[in-house]
Design a binder for these strands. Structure first.
Lengths: 201, 201
DNA sequence: ACCATTTACATACATGGTGTATGTATGTTA
DNA sequence: TAACATACATACACCATGTATGTAAATGGT
């Protein structure tokens, strides 16, 4: 029985992967630690050693999912030069990433309830939210949203995107829900001038 | 031991009140049925008789809170004649009502996680959401939001309002968070023409 | 008015799930 | 190589929900 550092890391990673699947499929409440450790091939001892308790495990999973989405958004947004176009691309990238089952259930639905809204909010702020607020501030300096509070706008937009992602994910696969939502964003943010990324209308 | 119909209704109502307090203060997961029934002066039998299980009890509480907020929004919105002004008043009324602890914790945070997003969404649709969508459709007929999908806009706005309420509630009491959010709404929905309800700027 | 049935609970128990205390073998460090 | 820390395994305590069962009162039909 060898238990080197790398073995330990692999155990932790495997537990994280299995936990992520179970939290996604069954939700936090119905996800069983015993089932998770069994599927990961270890016992409860390993799980509690690495993550302290169920909430600690969940929090780690949340951070991982958030980081994934954040990278996606950053990468897509950086493909443009114009700040407003960056924002639009970022919003689209977020919606595309957030409709994934893991993001929906873990991040958007269970996250706030399990961790508490404040903790969840702080975690989100350190990832996606912060970039969103910076981008909106930048845009305001360029003349957009004259006189409106950037923090208020940031939270407004963030909430809108979260709920929209949940709605889009629930629509039939061939629906244009994501495109429709992007149209809403374009209309509200830019007064419907150009920038429509698709050919409609 | 008298157990008439009215006694039964009163028992159910008392349980609902106590449950609402406990769900608000401790959240769904940490709210204990035993503590609730003890505080209501009955046993677990009464609770399970009236509400089936913990989730059933919670769902009833959610419906009650939703109904309260819905009434508030409807009443305030109906104070205006102009459809856009009705929308604005409705949004403000929602924000003012949704910052209450019970609304935040039960409706906005725990609701989707406990009931599942789809169930929660359907319940919300039968209350506030439906009116919002109707109002937005009406406005579109009047020339607002040309070409945008009303369902998409409805969900976008709904999510924005929910998150904004949570944000506002968390700000220091003397902050202008609610007013700032209203400014955001006015700016995005109406391109910042008039309708500012306060004297700023 | 009386019987059958339903209602409105109380009580007791089965079950499952988390957390924690303890044990133990291995790796690591001085 | 001795001491300590790490990485788990095992066993158990402890709630908390849910369910089965019991029971007294209310209700409804005849």
């Amino acid at each position: 029985m060898r238990r080197k550092k790398e073995d330990s890391l692999e155990t932790a990673a495997r537990l994280l992967d299995v936990a992520r699947e179970h939290f996604t499929e069954h939700g936090y409440a119905k996800a069983s630690m015993e089932v998770i450790v069994a599927e990961a091939g270890v016992t409860r001892g390993a799980l509690y050693h690495h993550y302290g308790n169920k909430q600690g495990l969940f929090e780690t999973v949340v951070a991982a999912v958030q980081a994934e989405i954040g990278e996606n958004v950053e990468r897509e947004a950086s493909r443009a030069e114009d700040p407003m176009e960056q924002l639009i691309l970022g919003c689209r990238a977020f919606l595309e990433a957030a409709v994934a089952p893991a993001a929906r259930r873990i991040l958007l639905v269970d996250g706030p309830a399990v961790l508490g809204w404040e903790v969840w909010r702080r975690m989100d702020e350190e990832n996606a939210m912060r970039h969103l607020e910076e981008q909106l501030g930048l845009l305001q300096e360029k003349g957009y949203f004259p006189g409106v509070s950037v923090p208020a706008l940031t939270h407004f937009l963030s909430g809108a995107l979260n709920e929209s992602a949940l709605w889009i994910a629930q629509q039939p696969g061939d629906s244009r829900a994501l495109e429709d939502t992007m149209e809403v964003i374009l209309h509200l943010l830019k007064l419907k001038t150009s920038y429509t990324t698709d050919s409609r209308r």
